[in-house]
Nucleic acid binder design. Structure first.
Lengths: 199, 199
DNA sequence: ATGGTATTTGACAAGGTGTCAAGAACGTGA
DNA sequence: TCACGTTCTTGACACCTTGTCAAATACCAT
């Protein structure tokens, strides 16, 4: 039948770039269509709705991001791993110019708007899923560290705490845009979890 | 001088209720006008723009909220004070049905949208200001606690850490809606900052 | 009472989402 | 080779949003 005139993945990348930069509600399908060189109607035909397009684009991002995190959490001492984890997290928030913030956190906060507009339950699950998987990754890292005597404490509680702090960093990034501050909080958190100096 | 047919503060309260519940972008001035029994044009005449209306409504909320926090942080042992602080914070996120989340965090994440739509620099400052004032409050509480020997550590760093965690709680609330989880993280944070059992 | 002034009201423009019918383009079967 | 059928594309439409403006209105003050 008639072939698409655009590349599915290209559109997903272009769309996510805009969603990330301007937020979901702040990005119109006209913006994306213009950037992608596609008619707006073709996007509706291919994806169904703005939210469906966002979801596909976000899943792409989430998969890529998880892989990168997994790599960062997989080498060196526990302290090094956690440091790499926070570094990556903060770099992610601060990427772009101006910095784009955390897409997951931003998306999460756009939930529950008026009917029709805004993200709904399906999007919430996608965001929650990434947060859960990151938490599991951190928890596994802590558990492994505990076995090697680098950490004593409850891995599950500590992982949740660490992930909560990263979500807080995403918020403070939007409030103050103060990257050194974010890194200080990260270092402080690692000290708190691992014990001030040892680890 | 024709007098206003509506009460300025009533509109502010009604508007903030909706902004809080549905987000700024998710709330239309038509919604507010209907709820307040006012013509949409009158709102523009009185407030200038949706964002200006939101800012006034938010400042009201911020002032009230700070007073409540101040009270909660002012009595009992340091541990009691911090517990009350987290309790209040979480209760605030979980108020309403369905829970409305944290208005500051939600607003912060709606920043930087497309031109025209969305919140801008002035709103960012309002959000940042509340976060800063809360941080100062917590820091003062920690300093006072330190003088009484209830806390040893850097009050500024610890306050920033605590506030970062509360911002993270606001995000996790949206992701999972799991209030016990939030309270666990809060308790864990207090233990971490004050030392597992003492304090 | 009457003029001046601020508020209200309704129409408008510009731009957003989503729908739909009609036109266009290609793969496939004859 | 050709025509059919299926899919994609395109443009018009309905309905929503924000924000502006002129005209009508209602009150205070003189």
């Amino acid at each position: 039948m008639r072939p698409r005139e655009f590349d599915h993945d290209d559109v997903l990348r272009i769309a996510f770039e805009q969603f990330w930069r301007k937020g979901v509600r702040g990005t119109s399908l006209s913006d994306i269509a213009r950037d992608a060189g596609v008619q707006r109607g073709s996007l509706y035909n291919a994806f169904g709705s703005k939210e469906a397009l966002f979801l596909q684009a976000y899943e792409r991002y989430a998969g890529d991001y998880l892989l990168v995190l997994q790599k960062a959490l997989g080498a060196g001492s526990l302290r090094k791993r956690l440091t790499a984890f926070f570094d990556l997290t903060i770099s992610n928030f601060r990427s772009g110019s101006p910095p784009r913030g955390c897409p997951t956190t931003r998306g999460l906060m756009e939930l529950g708007a008026a009917k029709g507009e805004g993200l709904d339950e399906e999007a919430r699950q996608a965001f929650a899923s990434l947060v859960s998987r990151i938490t599991a990754l951190v928890q596994d890292t802590l558990s492994a560290g505990a076995e090697r005597g680098e950490f004593s404490g409850n891995p599950a509680a500590a992982a949740l705490h660490i992930v909560a702090v990263t979500r807080g960093l995403a918020v403070l990034e939007r409030a103050f845009g103060d990257e050194p501050q974010l890194r200080k909080i990260a270092a402080h958190t690692i000290d708190l979890v691992l014990g001030k100096k040892g680890g």
